[in-house]
Simulated assay, not measured.
Amino acid sequence: SFLHKYLTSYEEGAFYVWTRKEFDVMLGEQDASICARYWNVHRDGNVDPANDPHDEFIAQNVLSVASTPEKLSKMYGMSAERITNIISSARQKLLQHRLKERPRPNLDDKIVTSWNGLAIAALAKAAGVLESTDPRRAQLYKKNAEEAISFIRKNLYDEKTGILKRVYRDGPGEADGFADDYAFLISGLLCMYEATFDVEYLQWADALQQKQIDAFWDAENGGFFSTSEGASDLILRLKDGLDSQEPSTNGVSANNLFRLGTLLGDPKLEEYAQQTCSAFSTELLQHPFLFSSLMPAIVASNLGMRSVVLAGDPKDPTIEKHLKRLRSKLLTNTTLVQLDPARGDSLDWLLSRNKLHKELLNVAAKGSGKPVVQVCEGTKCLDAFDMGDIESVLEELG
């Protein structure tokens, strides 16, 4: 972006960064000193040279809160209220200067399916974690994720062909989705299932997974190509295994396959996951740190997946207690399933796919409403526990 509207050369981050000299000129000596301490502004800049290989941020500062009005009030012998007013006034002065003198960078307003998949996963995970401590924010995040899913399904997905579109801007683009669009969206849907236990998310994730396999699977060597076989103007079909600014397509896909295979009791999906891991085995042994998103799948391929199944009334204190505890953990290679007998027809699809879930739901139904909480591996669950035993098992998960 441009540092000033009269300049013609671009500078990295120019719209957002500040010098200490600008603070002095715009705010005055005393206010500049207070605000510089508050926002961590230095005369030689606050960007670590290790993060500035091209020396584009010399003497530049990225504003970040580094102190509090209470600490600054003791330092400058002023009330915290006065310090707060100085900071508030300075913020407005800096904003007005930026809007007047610096051209705003162009806005990239396209909607990309894969990026939305990543956002949906993050929102769903946050909603699940916050549900017991900050329900208002949890509902907001869940609502944001639901709206993103609804938009993609309505505008970027063909229900008849099962094909995703890559991008939306003033309407869907012409390009069909790449493998990462499917992988990241499936991951988001799986996270939304575990945040809401709405089987529709699981159904769509399953449909997208089958389409990703059909369009991108390397039947000879395993793993997923980035582009479909029918894509035009291609010299080579590449496979993304390394993590970069985004997790690798194959890393996310392998985890999706293990999770879906566990949730649906489908060993074929787990076989695809195993083959995806094997496709990058040589590179993994040489440079494991470059394949971090694939590591959970590597662990699952060796140690297996687990599933915690909660069958019974979701409002039962036992169910609520265990669900709260599970959502407070960073579960590794462990899926969550909640079977609510009251949902009836909406569960039929899941029960038809995974007979184990049907058996556990029947146990809950026969137990006069007593909930069933089980830790399962593969197609078998651990022997029946009393609640003290199951708590110790749940404590080991993560």
Rank of each mutant, 00 (worst) to 15 (best):
L95C: 11
E271H: 09
D176W: 06
A300Q: 05
Y6G: 09
A254E: 07
V25A: 11
L234S: 07
D48I: 06
G173Q: 10
R43P: 11
P288G: 05
V393I: 13
L107Y: 12
L257P: 01
D108I: 10
D243I: 13
S253P: 09
W204P: 00
V375I: 14
G171V: 03
K110Y: 15
D313C: 09
P53S: 00
V363S: 14
L208S: 00
E359L: 04
K366H: 12
L285R: 14
P267C: 04
L190N: 01
E22S: 09
M75Q: 15
T196L: 11
L285W: 10
P267W: 02
K71E: 15
D52N: 12
R259G: 01
A254D: 06
G265V: 01
S33P: 02
D134G: 09
L303C: 06
Q274G: 10
R353A: 15
K154C: 05
K211P: 01
Q92M: 12
L189Y: 05
K93Y: 03
A127D: 00
H97I: 07
A80Q: 09
A138E: 03
E395C: 06
E391H: 08
Y272D: 02
L185I: 12
S132H: 12
L238H: 12
Y16P: 06
T113G: 11
M295V: 10
G28E: 02
G398H: 07
D240H: 04
L189H: 09
K165Y: 13
K355W: 03
Y16R: 08
I319S: 05
G177H: 02
G265M: 01
L310Y: 03
K93L: 12
K380M: 07
L118P: 02
A66C: 14
V373Y: 03
D158E: 04
L27K: 03
A364C: 05
N144M: 13
K324I: 03
K370Q: 15
Q275D: 10
K268N: 13
I120A: 03
A364Q: 08
S226A: 13
A219E: 14
K321I: 07
V62R: 04
T8K: 14
E391W: 07
Y157F: 15
R98S: 07
V372I: 12
H54R: 15
A145W: 03
E391P: 00
A122M: 12
L360N: 02
S64C: 01
Y76W: 06
A365K: 15
R325D: 12
K315T: 13
R327K: 10
T19C: 01
Q139A: 15
L3V: 10
L7V: 07
E22F: 01
W217S: 01
S232P: 11
L118A: 11
P341K: 04
T332N: 09
G28M: 06
D181L: 00
N51Y: 15
S187A: 15
V17A: 04
R306Q: 13
N362F: 10
G45L: 01
N155P: 08
A122T: 10
K324W: 02
G241I: 01
E159L: 11
N302A: 15
L190D: 00
E159W: 09
W349T: 08
Y16N: 11
E246T: 13
G28Q: 03
N333T: 06
V65S: 04
V372L: 04
V129L: 11
M295Q: 14
V373Q: 02
L326V: 11
E377D: 13
S67H: 07
F151R: 11
G128Y: 04
I86M: 12
